[in-house]
C-alpha cells in the first residue's frame, strides 16, 4: 500500500491539520519522488488544498513533519519556515486554484517578479541598482533570458507586453506555472492546473508538465480532478478522503483499488460511471 520512494524531494510525515473541531488532514504521510509527477486526488472537501497550504507555509500544521531534500543533501523542514522562505530557500513553488496573477502587470513583469530574490541580490538590495551598476544590468539581462525561455515554452512570447489580466483563461494558467518555474523550484505544487481548460489546452498542459519533469528536473505535485491529466501523466498517485490517505501507488494500482472506487462511489450514484469511464480513457490515451 505505502509506496516508499528512495529519492524523495518531499516527504510528508504524520501531517495533521485541525481547524477548531474539524480535523481537515488526519495523520497523512506520503513521499514525492524527485523527478516524478505525483498527483493528489480525492473527492471535494477531502483536504487536498489544505495539504498544499501546509506544504507551502500558508497554514502552520497542527502536527507533523514536512521535509524537502535537495540533490546536494540539504534538508529543509517546511513546517518551521516562514511562508516566503519556502520558495526562496527550500525551493518549493506553487500555483493557486483560483489563479493569482499580477493582473495589472505584463506577462514579462510577472515573470520578472518571479525572479525577485536573485535580482535583489544582484542589485545589491537596491543600493547598487539605483546607480545603474553593471552587475545588475547583466543580472537583469539573464533574468530576461529566463523569462523568454519560459514564455517560449508556454507559447506566450507574442503576448509578453500585454497585461496578464488580458490573457485568455488557459494562458493565465500557463503563465502562473511559468512564473512559478522562474523561481527555479525543486518542487512545483500545482493546485488544479487543468480546471477550466478545454481538451486542447489540457493536452498542452500535459506536454508542459512532461517537459518540466524531463528537462528541468523538477518534481511536480498536483491536485487534479481531470482524470485524463491524472492518469495520463502521473507516476504516482495519492488518494485522500476526509483528510485521510486511502491509497497510494501507481496509476494502475489506484485504478483497480476498491477503496478508491468506493470513495468516489460514495459521492453520487451518477458519478460512478463517469469516474470509471474517465479512468478508462485516461489509461488508454
Amino acid at each position: 500500500m505505502i509506496a516508499k520512494i528512495d529519492d524523495a524531494v518531499l516527504t510528508v510525515e504524520h501531517l495533521n491539520m485541525r481547524f477548531g473541531g474539524l480535523l481537515a488532514v488526519d495523520n497523512l504521510s506520503f513521499d514525492v519522488g524527485r523527478k516524478d509527477i505525483t498527483a493528489l486526488i480525492g473527492p471535494n472537501g477531502a483536504g487536498k488544498t489544505t495539504v498544499f497550504n501546509c506544504i507551502t507555509g500558508f497554514y502552520k500544521p497542527t502536527e507533523g513533519r514536512i521535509t524537502t531534500h535537495h540533490e546536494d543533501g540539504k534538508k529543509f523542514l517546511l513546517e518551521r519556515m516562514d511562508d516566503f522562505k519556502i520558495p526562496k530557500i527550500a525551493k518549493v513553488a506553487r500555483t493557486f486554484q483560483n489563479i493569482r496573477l499580477f493582473s495589472g502587470m505584463t506577462v514579462l513583469e510577472n515573470l520578472m517578479v518571479g525572479q525577485h530574490n536573485p535580482l535583489m541580490v544582484a542589485s545589491n538590495y537596491t543600493f547598487g541598482g539605483i546607480f545603474g551598476l553593471k552587475t545588475y544590468k547583466t543580472a537583469e539581462k539573464k533574468a530576461m533570458d529566463l523569462a523568454k525561455y519560459w514564455m517560449d515554452q508556454t507559447r506566450l512570447t507574442a503576448r509578453a507586453d500585454d497585461a496578464a489580466g488580458d490573457l485568455p483563461y488557459g494562458d493565465q494558467r500557463k503563465l502562473e506555472i511559468a512564473r512559478a518555474m522562474c523561481t527555479n523550484p525543486k518542487l512545483l505544487c500545482l493546485d488544479e492546473p487543468a480546471a477550466g481548460l478545454n481538451p486542447r489546452e489540457s493536452e498542452d498542459l500535459n506536454k508542459l508538465l512532461m517537459f518540466i519533469r524531463k528537462e528541468r528536473e523538477t518534481g511536480i505535485l498536483l491536485i487534479e480532478h481531470d482524470m485524463n491529466v491524472v492518469m495520463g501523466i502521473s507516476d504516482h498517485i495519492v488518494v485522500l478522503d476526509y483528510g485521510k490517505k486511502i491509497a497510494d501507488g501507481t496509476p494502475e494500482e489506484i485504478r483497480s483499488d476498491p477503496k478508491v472506487i468506493a470513495a468516489y462511489l460514495g459521492v453520487d450514484d451518477e458519478e460512478i460511471e463517469t469516474v470509471e469511464q474517465e479512468i478508462e480513457e485516461g489509461v488508454s490515451s
Binding site: 520558495p87 496573477l101 517578479v113 512559478a180
Partner: peptide, 12 residues
C-alpha cells in the same frame, strides 16, 4: 496586485 501570490514567489 496580489499579496498572497507575492509570498508564494518568495517575496518577504
Amino acid at each position: 496586485e496580489d499579496e498572497i501570490a507575492c509570498r508564494s514567489l518568495g517575496l518577504n
